[in-house]
Design a protein around this nucleic acid. Structure first.
Length: 208
DNA sequence: CACGCTTTAGGGGTCGTGTA
DNA sequence: TACACGACCCCTAAAGCGTG
């Protein structure tokens, strides 16, 4: 039995429905049992204690969990018990191990949401509309995202781009698959986390 | 149980080149 | 000139292991 590869796995691998991964599984288990020890979670999720611990600590520091100090008996401490005190729903909170909320991915989320709201746009317009006080979306980033969503069939081109003129795109209503923004992965394939499908690859086949 | 270290990949962005 | 597009870089999340 060889050790599994270390490190983070690609999104399209971890999103396998049969083996939903990591944070979401832990969060669902926590919501199900409300008060628990790390051992309880380990039994319920089959996830190693170290991984459970990092997430539990992050949740505690971010205010989702309450920690009850272990009782001391026979000079030994019992296991720490944790209680869910801030249940925010089915989506697992994204926190670091020191309790900060993760902001990565917000840019794409804002672009995706904005596309749906404004309907049609050039990448310049999209970047402006998607920008907030906390996070300014760079036009280049909006452009990049548009290109890939166009290839993947989410966007149709209303007017071709040209000199001094950015292409105008429209989001197909039927291709709004859900609130989670499609991701462009390192390998340049487009992954839709809503449908859990690869919707475009550089090799060209987009349909399954 | 807390914490530090390591590894791999994702997110976000810049930059260079080709082109109309 | 401004857009299209690919190559590359930096930071860090996620997951695991080891140690005090």
């Amino acid at each position: 039995m060889r050790k599994l590869p270390l490190g983070r796995k690609a999104a399209h691998l971890t999103a396998d429905k049969k083996r939903p991964q990591g944070r979401q599984v832990m969060w669902e288990a926590i919501r199900a049992i409300r008060t628990f020890t790390i051992q309880d979670l380990e039994i319920k999720t089959n996830i190693t204690q170290g991984t459970l611990r990092t997430y539990v600590m992050g949740l505690q520091r971010a205010g989702y969990l309450d920690r009850q100090e272990p009782e001391r008996k026979n000079n030994r401490y019992g296991p720490v018990r944790w209680t869910l005190i801030n249940d925010v729903g089915v989506e697992a909170p994204r926190v670091t191990r020191d309790g900060r909320h993760v902001t990565q991915g917000r840019g794409r989320e804002q672009l995706w949401r904005t596309m749906r709201i404004i309907g049609q746009f050039t990448f310049h317009e999209l970047a402006v509309q998607a920008s907030t006080e906390e996070l300014v979306v760079a036009p280049g980033e909006a452009n990049f995202y548009c290109q890939y969503l166009h290839r993947a069939g989410y966007l149709v081109c209303m007017e071709k781009g040209g000199p001094n003129k950015a292409a105008r795109y429209r989001l197909l209503k039927t291709r709004y698959t859900g609130p989670q923004a499609p991701q462009i992965q390192r390998v340049r394939q487009v992954w839709d986390p809503n449908t859990e499908q690869v919707v475009w690859t550089p090799e060209g086949q987009t349909d399954e």
